[in-house]
Nucleic acid binder design. Structure first.
Lengths: 220, 220
DNA sequence: TCTTGTTGTCACTCATCGGTGAGTAACAAC
DNA sequence: GTTGTTACTCACCGATGAGTGACAACAAGA
């Protein structure tokens, strides 16, 4: 009587009333694990991201993560593969009632869209933060998937507009993207960035206005 | 014979030939601990930053960290206090043979100086990465010290130049700083940022040129 | 029914973490 | 010497991490 079922009283945060007889369904379990991993990473960050934590969150045994994903690396790969769907969700059908006639129009709009998308996506934020904090195998894989998704997104949005002569669009855009990413990360972590408060919508309007000015300053 | 001294063979990275009879000097020990903590944080990042690791690196018992610094929090505070010296080391005597007549001149120069300073300072980089990755007590303390040091630095460099009308210098400068920080972090972690390679001096020249153009685009 | 493969659970090892309490070695005052 | 203080080390605790091997429950084919 070592494992008397009565002893397994429901824990506080476990699904209570439901004994939740786990049905034998590998596909569903795999999905549950992947979903749990994404939620965990988004909510807790990469600090507490591990086999045990994911298994706890998914409500299954960690052994299944090894079996189905070959460990944490495989699971991270799966998250990365899942990131491809990010693009589809972020392409608005219209251009916000704006005619994108110039490269400056385009970049202004893209900047604000990217800013908003990052602000709305905790998982993506955590991944970006992870990227600049470590250089492990896991991060590299995830990072590659993310940059590919980002590139695809930019590609689709750009259309056929060409950047003005005399500027290095790759370098300039890299700096713009860097700025947006860091602003959002700083805001998310501490509510401010380099003395600029980033909490209220009002604060964000200021940041967006400054971002627009910067984009217009360089692309006209 | 549980603790046969012969078993305690010197580890690979420990001071070998020197038995290094630790002399009883509290001040020196405190300094050694602080130095070890800074080096550890700079080299390994905040992931493996803990009492045990610092004690190992300092070559003393972790108990001393509790005694002298009241634990890891106190030690982090000490690192933060030490950050104040950052300012003095980063103020060049001349202006690089350049007359800073306008706010644009100033900001161009400051941007490049800050970029270079961050590139040269692994500890500062780790702290920035830490700031955007976590929001714990330790980070908040360190972050405050860093932002204060940065503000002081900017203050001293600015002199009496006033920003042009029509722009929000706080917001714009926050974005510029964010961009610089993220670019450097990305480069340090993965050697690139948003498709822009950041390894060779040539790569960095491109980035600096783009940064200059952005600054000039907004501040003239 | 018996067998075989899949799905899920459990129990364990080993390493490392933060933290603590007890004990030892150097030194100063007497 | 003896005594007391300071600087330092050691051995341990409970908790938690990754990872593994054995086993129970079940399903479907023979």
């Amino acid at each position: 009587m070592l494992n008397d079922p009565m002893v397994l009283t429901p824990i506080a945060d476990a699904p209570q009333a439901e004994p939740e007889k786990r049905i034998r369904d590998r596909g569903a379990t795999e999905k549950a694990i992947l979903a749990a991993a994404k939620v965990l990473l988004a909510e807790e960050g990469f600090q507490n991201f591990g086999i045990n934590a994911v298994a706890r969150k998914a409500g299954c045994d960690k052994q299944l993560i090894y079996r189905y994903y070959g460990g944490l690396n495989g699971l991270v790969d799966a998250i990365g593969a899942d990131l491809g769907t990010w693009v589809k969700d972020r392409i608005p059908e219209d251009t916000g009632g704006m005619f994108l006639l110039t490269y400056g129009d385009l970049m202004e709009r893209l900047s604000l869209l990217f800013l908003q998308a990052l602000r709305d996506d905790p998982l993506m934020r955590r991944i970006v933060a992870w990227e600049v904090s470590e250089n492990t195998e896991q991060v590299r894989r995830l990072s590659e998937a993310r940059s590919k998704a980002l590139a695809t997104w930019l590609e689709r949005m750009r259309g056929s507009l060409a950047p003005p002569k005399g500027v290095d669009p790759v370098a300039v855009n890299a700096i713009l993207i860097a700025a947006i990413q860091h602003i959002v990360l700083s805001a998310s972590a501490g509510g401010q960035c380099a003395g600029l408060a980033l909490k209220t919508p009002k604060d964000w309007e200021k940041a967006e206005a400054a971002l627009k000015r910067i984009v217009r300053g360089i692309y006209g």
